[in-house]
Amino acid sequence: MSLDANDIKAIAKLARLKIDEADVPGYATNLSNILDLVEHMNSVDTEGVVPMSHPLDVAQRLREDIVTETNQRDELQKNAPAVQDGLYLVPRVIE
């Protein structure tokens, strides 16, 4: 499977990564090689094998529906670069 320059730019955009135009061909080659390597696994016969989502053979543990968390806003907002009226402030996301 081979990725072209447009694929690389789309992937970078989805991941919010800023990449240099000059590096795009290199990424395309390297990522394509990785995908080719993984592609080898398609030659294994997996007929009748249930896809594995988790390597552990255990079930999800469930919690009781009880409120256990108290208000930690002041502590948590110490990490935030900007807050106002209890809200986290971020660069405007709508024009």
Partner: peptide, 28 residues
Amino acid sequence: TKSKIFSGASTAYGAEPNTQACAVDVAL
């Protein structure tokens, strides 16, 4: 439910902003 789907923070409507958002909900 009384608490959130993956954390023990309250789901009550109308609370002061971010007073019902715990470490799991803010994704620490």
